[in-house]
Amino acid sequence: MLRIEQLSLALPYYPRFWRRRFATHLDQLSFSVTAGSVHAVVGASGAGKSLLAHAIMGLLPKDAQLSGSCFFKQTLLDEPRKRALRGRELALIPQSLSALDPLARSQHQVNWAARRAGLPPSPARQAASQALAHYQLDERARRAYPHELSGGMARRVLTAMAHVAQASLVIADEPTIGLDPAQRSRVLDALAALALQGKAVMLITHDLRHALSIADRVTVMREGRCVESADASAFQGTGQMLESAYARALWQALPDNAFNVDTEYAEESRFA
């Protein structure tokens, strides 16, 4: 569904007020996301995960330098095509909940998303109410304005919007941050349900453990580079099926596992 080849990104910064330099944030990333699966992208904060999402959606600032290529359904995904497809074929569930219109009830927001996807009014209403039911949003949540929604409900509204927009690629950026376990599993279930319908879901998160509960493949990122892409099933035992030391350390550092990092790796990784 989505294939990324040698994607690099540099953003400007200003060491002095008037002088401009470029810093590399993504460094020759390559991986692909297949339809009907959840692909998790994990890494520390600052590894460039969110920038990757913005690069795919074409939401980068104008002065960003992007190289390499993305292919969506076997066709090159360039900036005009990103603009044409986002909100329809490409959907982003952003990290910040300010993406919802603060003056509209949830059901209307989902309804509008369906209309944008080209449905006529009455099927759109039907699709919206089905989607809201599908993601377990009750009557109160449907009539609520964004500020009345909890974090988990708001993310499920965003998921429902991606659902009715009939997007074939859904990118969720840290959808579980700040949620308690019950809310988190509902949101993750919603994403897994999207994948079951044949959509490609890209889950961007720092939370390896919960990403593994729904992911089929996992890409580990570190400092803008792709360290490893592995099947989710490789994350088991002591991580002996993982190729890179960093991915293994990430797995081993979880409280349910060793809660410790290999000694050879520790000095380098510790606060690296």
């Binding site: 200003y14 007020f17 008037w18 401009r20 104008k62 002065d63």
Partner: peptide, 10 residues
Amino acid sequence: ATQPRLRALA
């Protein structure tokens, strides 16, 4: 034109 800060400064 792509350096907004420089333009504002000028």
